[in-house]
Amino acid sequence: MWLNRDVISVLDFSKEELLDLFNKAKQIESIRENSFSNLKGKVLATAFFEPSTRTRLSFQAAMLRLGGTTLDLGEPTVSSLAKGENISDTVRMLDYYSDVIVIRHKLEGVSRYAAEICEHPVINAGEGTKEHPTQTMIDLYEVWKTFKSLENLTYAIVGDIKHARTISSLILSFSIFKPKKVYLISPLELRAKEKIKSFMESNGILYEELTTLSEVLEEADVFYITRIQKERFSDPYEYEKVKGSYVITLEHTKKMKEGAIILHPLPRVDELSPKVDSTKNAAYFSQARGGLYLRMALLRAILTGD
């Protein structure tokens, strides 16, 4: 089921496969030792054509903790990309040198193309504005651990709905694990693209677009917060007008219903007050930590089948 699988889109996986992955991750997480030798002799290559902290490091940490080794393409300025080498040739070389390739690029379709030309499995670590499948797996893993189920939950997704690939990728997964309702909370300028809305409609996902958070504070089970991207606003005044509406504070958490959790794919800027960190609603550090185990489970599954 898992051996040699590419990970390009969350939609490439069934509900059963995702639940199987979450169980594998939980099993790894439950072992305190956290050091294995399953992937001894295996090499993971990371090729990040866009900046990354967590995704790159957690994939590398996951590989190292499984007994494997890693190599990194490095900044485009230090590799042959600076000499004009194309993506295709670069990826082919990584395929010769490694057993699995983790790739991030601003262009869309790169990982599927890489998977087509590579013999070894390719993992999409974020691409364009559409997909970030392993982040979605991590998000779902955290929700699954908290609620013991991924069905019938109410989500409040807050921030740059239009551009954040973590959001569109999460929305794709709602066709696999049906939520009760999804609130999309953003300034008008950053509302979901038509394609995402028609995806939700054609998959029977109930959603509502809002501009303020206050009316869903008591209703949502999961708050998924992302950064409002100042640079996307054509008018700085418009940004100033809305930015405060999307900062999660201690006051907000007091109105949240019992058991509600706050997720954030990180990095955060100012949309999530550090004062929230110590509340029982704050699940974003647990989510980030779970990312390591989820990626360990994923790497072990696609490289050994276990």
Binding site: G84, I87, E108
Partner: peptide, 30 residues
């Protein structure tokens, strides 16, 4: 922003034909 529109990549665009009431083409990459 699709990889198939990048000039120096040796890749041909491939579009899947989705046959419904109206024909829709879907890029297999992006």
């Amino acid at each position: 922003l699709c990889i198939t529109n990048k000039q120096d990549e040796p890749i041909l665009p491939k579009l899947k034909v989705v046959k419904g009431l109206k024909i829709v083409l879907e890029c297999i990459y992006c």
